[in-house]
Nucleic acid binder design. Structure first.
Lengths: 213, 213
DNA sequence: CACCGTTGCCAACGCTTGTTGGCTTGAGCG
DNA sequence: CGCTCAAGCCAACAAGCGTTGGCAACGGTG
Protein backbone atom coordinates (compact mmCIF):
# COMPACT_ATOMS: atom_id res chain seq x y z
CA UNK A 1 0.00 0.00 0.00
CA UNK A 2 2.38 2.64 1.20
CA UNK A 3 2.21 6.27 0.36
CA UNK A 4 -0.68 7.17 -1.86
CA UNK A 5 -0.20 10.90 -2.09
CA UNK A 6 -1.71 11.19 1.36
CA UNK A 7 -4.70 13.11 0.23
CA UNK A 8 -6.92 13.13 3.32
CA UNK A 9 -9.80 12.63 0.95
CA UNK A 10 -12.37 9.90 1.51
CA UNK A 11 -11.76 6.43 0.21
CA UNK A 12 -8.93 5.70 2.58
CA UNK A 13 -11.24 4.52 5.28
CA UNK A 14 -9.19 2.34 7.57
CA UNK A 15 -6.01 1.01 6.07
CA UNK A 16 -4.23 0.24 9.29
CA UNK A 17 -5.89 -2.70 11.08
CA UNK A 18 -3.31 -5.15 12.35
CA UNK A 19 -3.20 -8.39 10.48
CA UNK A 20 -4.10 -10.44 13.57
CA UNK A 21 -7.81 -10.09 14.04
CA UNK A 22 -7.63 -9.33 17.74
CA UNK A 23 -6.34 -6.31 19.57
CA UNK A 24 -7.89 -2.88 19.60
CA UNK A 25 -8.30 -1.11 16.31
CA UNK A 26 -5.79 1.67 16.14
CA UNK A 27 -7.86 4.15 14.21
CA UNK A 28 -10.70 5.10 16.49
CA UNK A 29 -10.12 4.99 20.16
CA UNK A 30 -7.72 2.22 21.07
CA UNK A 31 -6.89 2.84 24.74
CA UNK A 32 -3.24 1.98 24.45
CA UNK A 33 -1.86 4.37 27.00
CA UNK A 34 -3.89 7.34 28.01
CA UNK A 35 -0.91 9.52 28.80
CA UNK A 36 0.93 8.93 25.55
CA UNK A 37 -2.28 9.26 23.64
CA UNK A 38 -2.94 12.66 25.12
CA UNK A 39 0.64 13.76 24.51
CA UNK A 40 0.35 12.81 20.85
CA UNK A 41 -2.97 14.58 20.47
CA UNK A 42 -1.67 17.75 22.09
CA UNK A 43 1.42 17.77 19.88
CA UNK A 44 -0.71 17.05 16.83
CA UNK A 45 -3.16 19.84 17.56
CA UNK A 46 -0.49 22.47 18.01
CA UNK A 47 1.50 21.35 14.99
CA UNK A 48 -1.50 21.05 12.68
CA UNK A 49 -2.61 24.49 13.85
CA UNK A 50 0.79 26.05 13.38
CA UNK A 51 1.81 24.52 10.07
CA UNK A 52 -1.29 23.10 8.40
CA UNK A 53 -1.92 19.55 7.34
CA UNK A 54 0.62 18.98 4.59
CA UNK A 55 3.52 20.68 6.31
CA UNK A 56 2.91 18.71 9.48
CA UNK A 57 4.97 15.53 9.48
CA UNK A 58 4.27 12.56 11.64
CA UNK A 59 7.91 12.56 12.63
CA UNK A 60 7.58 16.11 13.93
CA UNK A 61 4.48 15.31 15.94
CA UNK A 62 6.14 12.24 17.38
CA UNK A 63 9.25 14.21 18.25
CA UNK A 64 7.26 16.85 20.05
CA UNK A 65 5.44 14.15 21.98
CA UNK A 66 8.76 12.54 22.84
CA UNK A 67 8.15 9.23 21.12
CA UNK A 68 8.80 7.51 17.81
CA UNK A 69 6.89 8.12 14.61
CA UNK A 70 5.77 4.53 14.36
CA UNK A 71 4.01 4.94 17.69
CA UNK A 72 1.79 7.59 16.19
CA UNK A 73 0.85 5.16 13.47
CA UNK A 74 0.02 2.45 15.96
CA UNK A 75 -2.14 4.79 18.00
CA UNK A 76 -4.00 6.48 15.20
CA UNK A 77 -3.57 4.32 12.14
CA UNK A 78 -2.60 7.02 9.68
CA UNK A 79 -1.91 10.72 9.37
CA UNK A 80 -5.50 11.31 8.33
CA UNK A 81 -6.72 9.39 11.36
CA UNK A 82 -4.51 11.47 13.59
CA UNK A 83 -5.92 14.65 12.11
CA UNK A 84 -9.46 13.48 12.61
CA UNK A 85 -8.79 12.53 16.21
CA UNK A 86 -7.07 15.83 16.87
CA UNK A 87 -9.82 18.01 15.45
CA UNK A 88 -13.05 16.56 16.73
CA UNK A 89 -14.46 19.69 18.22
CA UNK A 90 -16.47 19.49 21.36
CA UNK A 91 -19.41 21.52 20.23
CA UNK A 92 -20.60 24.07 22.74
CA UNK A 93 -23.71 25.31 21.04
CA UNK A 94 -24.86 28.75 22.10
CA UNK A 95 -28.47 29.05 23.17
CA UNK A 96 -29.71 32.24 21.59
CA UNK A 97 -33.08 32.21 23.29
CA UNK A 98 -31.58 33.28 26.63
CA UNK A 99 -30.78 36.73 25.28
CA UNK A 100 -33.21 39.41 24.16
CA UNK A 101 -33.56 39.55 20.40
CA UNK A 102 -31.56 42.75 20.10
CA UNK A 103 -28.50 41.33 21.80
CA UNK A 104 -28.24 37.95 20.09
CA UNK A 105 -25.65 39.12 17.60
CA UNK A 106 -23.41 40.20 20.42
CA UNK A 107 -24.00 36.89 22.18
CA UNK A 108 -22.85 34.94 19.14
CA UNK A 109 -19.74 36.99 18.50
CA UNK A 110 -18.74 36.97 22.14
CA UNK A 111 -19.25 33.23 22.33
CA UNK A 112 -16.84 32.54 19.50
CA UNK A 113 -14.27 35.21 20.24
CA UNK A 114 -14.07 34.11 23.87
CA UNK A 115 -13.57 30.57 22.74
CA UNK A 116 -10.86 31.46 20.26
CA UNK A 117 -9.02 33.69 22.68
CA UNK A 118 -8.52 30.69 24.93
CA UNK A 119 -5.46 29.58 23.06
CA UNK A 120 -5.45 26.12 24.56
CA UNK A 121 -8.62 25.42 22.67
CA UNK A 122 -8.60 27.51 19.54
CA UNK A 123 -5.91 25.30 18.09
CA UNK A 124 -8.65 23.06 16.81
CA UNK A 125 -10.36 25.81 14.86
CA UNK A 126 -7.10 27.09 13.44
CA UNK A 127 -6.01 23.62 12.39
CA UNK A 128 -9.39 22.95 10.88
CA UNK A 129 -9.45 26.22 9.00
CA UNK A 130 -5.88 25.85 7.75
CA UNK A 131 -6.72 22.43 6.40
CA UNK A 132 -10.26 22.97 5.16
CA UNK A 133 -8.90 25.41 2.64
CA UNK A 134 -7.10 22.64 0.78
CA UNK A 135 -9.14 19.54 1.60
CA UNK A 136 -12.68 18.95 0.49
CA UNK A 137 -13.24 16.43 3.24
CA UNK A 138 -12.24 18.87 5.94
CA UNK A 139 -14.16 21.63 4.21
CA UNK A 140 -17.25 19.48 4.59
CA UNK A 141 -16.39 19.08 8.26
CA UNK A 142 -16.30 22.85 8.66
CA UNK A 143 -19.56 23.22 6.75
CA UNK A 144 -21.14 20.86 9.22
CA UNK A 145 -19.70 22.78 12.13
CA UNK A 146 -21.14 26.03 10.83
CA UNK A 147 -24.46 24.29 10.43
CA UNK A 148 -24.51 22.98 13.98
CA UNK A 149 -22.97 25.94 15.73
CA UNK A 150 -24.64 28.79 13.92
CA UNK A 151 -27.42 27.84 11.56
CA UNK A 152 -28.81 25.38 14.08
CA UNK A 153 -29.31 27.86 16.91
CA UNK A 154 -30.70 30.41 14.47
CA UNK A 155 -33.20 27.89 13.18
CA UNK A 156 -34.11 26.98 16.74
CA UNK A 157 -35.47 30.49 17.13
CA UNK A 158 -38.10 29.59 14.59
CA UNK A 159 -36.60 31.64 11.81
CA UNK A 160 -37.28 30.78 8.22
CA UNK A 161 -34.28 31.76 6.07
CA UNK A 162 -32.14 30.44 8.89
CA UNK A 163 -29.86 28.78 6.34
CA UNK A 164 -29.11 32.05 4.61
CA UNK A 165 -28.60 33.93 7.85
CA UNK A 166 -26.39 31.16 9.20
CA UNK A 167 -24.16 31.13 6.14
CA UNK A 168 -23.73 34.90 6.19
CA UNK A 169 -22.91 34.88 9.89
CA UNK A 170 -20.56 31.95 9.36
CA UNK A 171 -18.72 33.82 6.61
CA UNK A 172 -18.37 36.90 8.83
CA UNK A 173 -17.06 34.87 11.75
CA UNK A 174 -14.69 32.78 9.65
CA UNK A 175 -13.38 35.95 8.08
CA UNK A 176 -12.81 37.35 11.53
CA UNK A 177 -10.92 34.24 12.62
CA UNK A 178 -8.92 34.27 9.40
CA UNK A 179 -7.96 37.91 9.67
CA UNK A 180 -7.27 37.98 13.38
CA UNK A 181 -5.63 34.62 14.07
CA UNK A 182 -4.17 33.41 10.78
CA UNK A 183 -3.37 36.31 8.49
CA UNK A 184 -2.94 38.60 11.49
CA UNK A 185 -4.28 41.70 9.79
CA UNK A 186 -3.36 44.73 11.82
CA UNK A 187 -4.79 46.31 13.83
CA UNK A 188 -7.42 43.60 13.96
CA UNK A 189 -4.97 41.05 15.32
CA UNK A 190 -3.97 43.13 18.32
CA UNK A 191 -7.26 44.77 19.23
CA UNK A 192 -8.77 43.91 22.58
CA UNK A 193 -11.27 41.09 22.38
CA UNK A 194 -14.02 43.31 23.73
CA UNK A 195 -13.42 45.87 21.00
CA UNK A 196 -13.58 43.19 18.36
CA UNK A 197 -16.89 41.99 19.74
CA UNK A 198 -18.24 45.51 19.81
CA UNK A 199 -17.15 46.11 16.23
CA UNK A 200 -18.47 42.92 14.69
CA UNK A 201 -21.57 42.20 16.75
CA UNK A 202 -23.84 44.72 14.99
CA UNK A 203 -23.08 43.12 11.63
CA UNK A 204 -24.08 39.72 12.94
CA UNK A 205 -27.13 41.29 14.53
CA UNK A 206 -28.12 42.62 11.15
CA UNK A 207 -27.66 39.25 9.46
CA UNK A 208 -29.97 37.86 12.14
CA UNK A 209 -32.71 40.37 11.66
CA UNK A 210 -32.55 41.88 8.23
CA UNK A 211 -35.62 41.37 6.10
CA UNK A 212 -35.45 39.07 3.06
CA UNK A 213 -34.27 40.81 -0.12
CA UNK B 1 21.09 22.09 -3.69
CA UNK B 2 18.07 19.98 -4.35
CA UNK B 3 14.91 19.77 -2.34
CA UNK B 4 14.97 21.82 0.83
CA UNK B 5 11.47 21.15 2.07
CA UNK B 6 10.21 23.66 -0.46
CA UNK B 7 8.98 26.09 2.08
CA UNK B 8 8.09 29.14 -0.01
CA UNK B 9 9.55 31.21 2.79
CA UNK B 10 12.08 33.94 2.09
CA UNK B 11 15.77 33.17 1.97
CA UNK B 12 15.62 31.26 -1.27
CA UNK B 13 16.05 34.31 -3.40
CA UNK B 14 17.27 33.19 -6.78
CA UNK B 15 18.74 29.74 -6.88
CA UNK B 16 18.32 29.09 -10.57
CA UNK B 17 20.69 31.24 -12.66
CA UNK B 18 22.32 29.20 -15.38
CA UNK B 19 25.99 28.53 -14.91
CA UNK B 20 26.96 30.44 -18.05
CA UNK B 21 26.79 34.10 -17.25
CA UNK B 22 24.81 35.04 -20.31
CA UNK B 23 21.25 34.30 -21.23
CA UNK B 24 18.13 35.71 -19.62
CA UNK B 25 17.61 35.06 -15.94
CA UNK B 26 14.83 32.55 -15.56
CA UNK B 27 13.27 33.93 -12.40
CA UNK B 28 11.83 37.27 -13.28
CA UNK B 29 10.72 37.79 -16.80
CA UNK B 30 12.94 35.88 -19.18
CA UNK B 31 11.21 36.12 -22.57
CA UNK B 32 11.93 32.58 -23.65
CA UNK B 33 8.76 32.03 -25.58
CA UNK B 34 5.77 34.18 -24.88
CA UNK B 35 3.25 31.52 -25.82
CA UNK B 36 4.71 28.80 -23.67
CA UNK B 37 5.19 31.22 -20.83
CA UNK B 38 1.55 32.19 -20.90
CA UNK B 39 0.46 28.57 -21.09
CA UNK B 40 2.51 27.72 -18.02
CA UNK B 41 1.15 30.67 -16.09
CA UNK B 42 -2.43 29.83 -16.95
CA UNK B 43 -1.97 26.22 -15.92
CA UNK B 44 -0.22 27.29 -12.75
CA UNK B 45 -2.94 29.73 -11.78
CA UNK B 46 -5.73 27.24 -12.18
CA UNK B 47 -3.86 24.46 -10.44
CA UNK B 48 -2.68 26.56 -7.53
CA UNK B 49 -6.23 27.85 -7.15
CA UNK B 50 -7.77 24.42 -7.32
CA UNK B 51 -5.37 22.47 -5.13
CA UNK B 52 -3.31 24.95 -3.12
CA UNK B 53 0.42 25.36 -3.08
CA UNK B 54 1.66 22.10 -1.58
CA UNK B 55 -0.66 19.84 -3.48
CA UNK B 56 0.26 21.46 -6.75
CA UNK B 57 3.15 19.63 -8.40
CA UNK B 58 5.33 21.09 -11.06
CA UNK B 59 4.76 17.97 -13.10
CA UNK B 60 1.02 18.57 -13.03
CA UNK B 61 1.38 22.17 -14.13
CA UNK B 62 3.72 21.15 -16.91
CA UNK B 63 1.39 18.42 -18.01
CA UNK B 64 -1.55 20.77 -18.19
CA UNK B 65 0.55 23.21 -20.19
CA UNK B 66 1.57 20.39 -22.52
CA UNK B 67 5.28 20.54 -21.82
CA UNK B 68 7.89 18.94 -19.61
CA UNK B 69 8.45 19.73 -15.96
CA UNK B 70 12.00 20.83 -16.55
CA UNK B 71 10.68 23.54 -18.85
CA UNK B 72 8.80 25.09 -15.97
CA UNK B 73 12.02 25.20 -14.01
CA UNK B 74 13.86 26.86 -16.86
CA UNK B 75 11.15 29.48 -17.24
CA UNK B 76 10.53 30.29 -13.61
CA UNK B 77 13.50 28.99 -11.69
CA UNK B 78 11.64 27.21 -8.93
CA UNK B 79 8.20 26.33 -7.68
CA UNK B 80 8.17 29.39 -5.46
CA UNK B 81 9.13 31.57 -8.40
CA UNK B 82 6.32 30.10 -10.42
CA UNK B 83 3.85 30.84 -7.65
CA UNK B 84 5.04 34.41 -7.37
CA UNK B 85 4.78 34.94 -11.10
CA UNK B 86 1.32 33.38 -11.19
CA UNK B 87 -0.15 35.46 -8.39
CA UNK B 88 1.01 38.98 -8.99
CA UNK B 89 -2.36 40.63 -8.87
CA UNK B 90 -3.08 43.52 -11.12
CA UNK B 91 -4.53 45.85 -8.55
CA UNK B 92 -7.66 47.63 -9.64
CA UNK B 93 -8.16 49.97 -6.76
CA UNK B 94 -11.68 51.23 -6.29
CA UNK B 95 -12.13 54.98 -6.03
CA UNK B 96 -14.59 55.50 -3.21
CA UNK B 97 -14.93 59.22 -3.70
CA UNK B 98 -17.04 58.77 -6.84
CA UNK B 99 -19.96 57.43 -4.79
CA UNK B 100 -22.03 59.25 -2.21
CA UNK B 101 -20.98 58.41 1.33
CA UNK B 102 -24.01 56.25 1.98
CA UNK B 103 -23.32 53.94 -0.95
CA UNK B 104 -19.62 53.33 -0.55
CA UNK B 105 -20.09 50.04 1.25
CA UNK B 106 -22.10 48.75 -1.64
CA UNK B 107 -19.47 50.01 -4.07
CA UNK B 108 -16.73 48.08 -2.31
CA UNK B 109 -18.63 44.82 -2.06
CA UNK B 110 -19.80 45.02 -5.64
CA UNK B 111 -16.29 45.74 -6.82
CA UNK B 112 -14.86 42.61 -5.25
CA UNK B 113 -17.76 40.28 -5.89
CA UNK B 114 -17.87 41.26 -9.54
CA UNK B 115 -14.19 40.62 -9.80
CA UNK B 116 -14.38 37.24 -8.14
CA UNK B 117 -17.35 36.14 -10.19
CA UNK B 118 -15.25 36.53 -13.30
CA UNK B 119 -13.78 33.10 -12.93
CA UNK B 120 -10.98 33.74 -15.36
CA UNK B 121 -9.54 36.21 -12.91
CA UNK B 122 -10.54 35.11 -9.44
CA UNK B 123 -8.13 32.23 -9.68
CA UNK B 124 -5.46 34.53 -8.36
CA UNK B 125 -7.35 35.42 -5.21
CA UNK B 126 -8.31 31.83 -4.55
CA UNK B 127 -4.77 30.62 -5.04
CA UNK B 128 -3.46 33.38 -2.84
CA UNK B 129 -5.98 32.69 -0.11
CA UNK B 130 -5.44 28.94 -0.22
CA UNK B 131 -1.71 29.46 0.18
CA UNK B 132 -1.65 32.41 2.58
CA UNK B 133 -3.23 30.20 5.17
CA UNK B 134 -0.13 28.04 5.39
CA UNK B 135 2.65 30.36 4.33
CA UNK B 136 3.75 33.41 6.24
CA UNK B 137 5.32 34.93 3.17
CA UNK B 138 2.11 34.71 1.20
CA UNK B 139 0.12 35.85 4.21
CA UNK B 140 2.22 39.01 4.17
CA UNK B 141 1.39 39.37 0.49
CA UNK B 142 -2.31 39.22 1.29
CA UNK B 143 -1.90 41.69 4.12
CA UNK B 144 -0.35 44.09 1.67
CA UNK B 145 -3.17 43.52 -0.79
CA UNK B 146 -5.77 44.32 1.85
CA UNK B 147 -3.83 47.43 2.71
CA UNK B 148 -3.69 48.65 -0.87
CA UNK B 149 -7.13 47.58 -2.02
CA UNK B 150 -9.19 48.46 1.04
CA UNK B 151 -7.39 50.39 3.72
CA UNK B 152 -5.77 52.63 1.11
CA UNK B 153 -8.98 53.86 -0.50
CA UNK B 154 -10.58 54.30 2.91
CA UNK B 155 -7.66 56.38 4.06
CA UNK B 156 -7.87 58.41 0.86
CA UNK B 157 -11.25 59.64 2.05
CA UNK B 158 -9.46 61.40 4.86
CA UNK B 159 -10.63 59.02 7.52
CA UNK B 160 -8.68 58.60 10.70
CA UNK B 161 -9.07 55.05 12.01
CA UNK B 162 -8.79 53.94 8.40
CA UNK B 163 -6.54 51.07 9.46
CA UNK B 164 -9.14 49.65 11.80
CA UNK B 165 -11.96 50.10 9.32
CA UNK B 166 -9.88 48.54 6.56
CA UNK B 167 -9.00 45.49 8.59
CA UNK B 168 -12.61 44.90 9.60
CA UNK B 169 -13.78 45.26 6.01
CA UNK B 170 -10.98 43.02 4.84
CA UNK B 171 -11.99 40.35 7.32
CA UNK B 172 -15.59 40.54 6.19
CA UNK B 173 -14.65 40.30 2.51
CA UNK B 174 -12.14 37.52 3.00
CA UNK B 175 -14.72 35.61 5.00
CA UNK B 176 -17.16 36.08 2.16
CA UNK B 177 -14.65 34.78 -0.38
CA UNK B 178 -13.77 31.88 1.89
CA UNK B 179 -17.36 30.87 2.48
CA UNK B 180 -18.62 31.38 -1.04
CA UNK B 181 -15.74 30.19 -3.21
CA UNK B 182 -13.63 27.86 -1.10
CA UNK B 183 -15.71 26.23 1.62
CA UNK B 184 -18.83 26.65 -0.50
CA UNK B 185 -21.17 27.23 2.41
CA UNK B 186 -24.73 26.85 1.24
CA UNK B 187 -26.80 28.73 0.39
CA UNK B 188 -24.13 31.40 0.24
CA UNK B 189 -22.26 29.64 -2.54
CA UNK B 190 -25.22 29.52 -4.90
CA UNK B 191 -26.88 32.83 -4.17
CA UNK B 192 -27.03 35.35 -7.00
CA UNK B 193 -24.17 37.81 -6.91
CA UNK B 194 -26.56 40.72 -6.58
CA UNK B 195 -28.17 39.17 -3.51
CA UNK B 196 -24.79 38.63 -1.92
CA UNK B 197 -23.91 42.25 -2.50
CA UNK B 198 -27.22 43.37 -1.05
CA UNK B 199 -26.72 41.20 2.02
CA UNK B 200 -23.15 42.13 2.81
CA UNK B 201 -22.95 45.76 1.70
CA UNK B 202 -24.67 47.22 4.78
CA UNK B 203 -22.15 45.53 7.06
CA UNK B 204 -19.28 47.07 5.14
CA UNK B 205 -21.10 50.37 5.14
CA UNK B 206 -21.28 50.21 8.92
CA UNK B 207 -17.57 49.42 9.22
CA UNK B 208 -16.95 52.50 7.10
CA UNK B 209 -19.06 54.83 9.15
CA UNK B 210 -19.44 53.53 12.68
CA UNK B 211 -18.14 55.82 15.41
CA UNK B 212 -15.05 54.79 17.34
CA UNK B 213 -15.76 52.61 20.37
C1' DC C 1 10.04 -18.97 36.95
C1' DA C 2 7.77 -19.05 32.31
C1' DC C 3 4.41 -16.93 29.43
C1' DC C 4 2.36 -13.11 27.13
C1' DG C 5 0.65 -8.74 25.80
C1' DT C 6 1.89 -3.99 25.75
C1' DT C 7 4.99 -0.15 24.76
C1' DG C 8 8.42 1.45 22.48
C1' DC C 9 12.49 2.01 19.08
C1' DC C 10 15.07 1.11 14.84
C1' DA C 11 15.75 0.35 10.20
C1' DA C 12 13.99 -0.07 6.08
C1' DC C 13 10.60 0.13 1.91
C1' DG C 14 8.32 2.37 -1.71
C1' DC C 15 6.94 6.39 -3.50
C1' DT C 16 6.71 11.35 -4.76
C1' DT C 17 8.77 15.58 -5.08
C1' DG C 18 11.69 19.58 -6.64
C1' DT C 19 15.47 19.99 -9.21
C1' DT C 20 19.49 19.20 -12.54
C1' DG C 21 22.16 18.06 -16.66
C1' DG C 22 22.64 16.21 -20.99
C1' DC C 23 20.66 15.01 -25.32
C1' DT C 24 17.77 15.88 -29.56
C1' DT C 25 15.40 18.68 -32.72
C1' DG C 26 14.71 22.46 -35.70
C1' DA C 27 15.02 27.12 -37.35
C1' DG C 28 18.01 31.02 -38.83
C1' DC C 29 22.05 32.46 -41.13
C1' DG C 30 26.92 32.74 -43.13
C1' DC D 1 26.12 22.86 -46.35
C1' DG D 2 27.82 23.76 -41.55
C1' DC D 3 27.36 26.36 -37.46
C1' DT D 4 24.83 28.21 -33.51
C1' DC D 5 21.43 28.71 -30.26
C1' DA D 6 17.00 28.33 -28.19
C1' DA D 7 13.29 25.01 -27.09
C1' DG D 8 12.16 20.96 -25.59
C1' DC D 9 12.34 16.09 -23.61
C1' DC D 10 14.27 12.21 -20.92
C1' DA D 11 16.49 10.17 -17.20
C1' DA D 12 18.33 10.56 -13.07
C1' DC D 13 19.46 12.44 -8.28
C1' DA D 14 18.83 13.39 -3.46
C1' DA D 15 15.81 14.11 -0.02
C1' DG D 16 11.62 13.69 2.64
C1' DC D 17 7.49 11.48 3.26
C1' DG D 18 3.93 7.97 5.25
C1' DT D 19 4.08 3.59 6.47
C1' DT D 20 5.55 -1.29 7.91
C1' DG D 21 7.62 -5.14 10.35
C1' DG D 22 10.74 -6.92 13.46
C1' DC D 23 12.97 -6.79 17.79
C1' DA D 24 14.11 -5.29 22.83
C1' DA D 25 12.45 -4.15 27.43
C1' DC D 26 9.00 -4.48 30.91
C1' DG D 27 5.13 -5.66 33.89
C1' DG D 28 1.54 -8.62 35.26
C1' DT D 29 -0.37 -13.33 35.80
C1' DG D 30 -0.30 -18.62 35.86
Amino acid sequence: MARMKDSLLPGRARPAQRRDGQGPVAGSGGPRSAGTRRAILAAARSTFAARGYEQTTIRAVAGQAGIDASMVMRYFGSKAGLFTAATTMDLVIPDLAVAPAARRGELIVRHFVDRWEDSSRDDELIALLRTAVTSEAVAAQLQAAVGQLITGPVAALGDDRAAERGALIGAQLLGLALGRYILRLEPLASMAAADVVAAVAPSVQRYLSRPPP
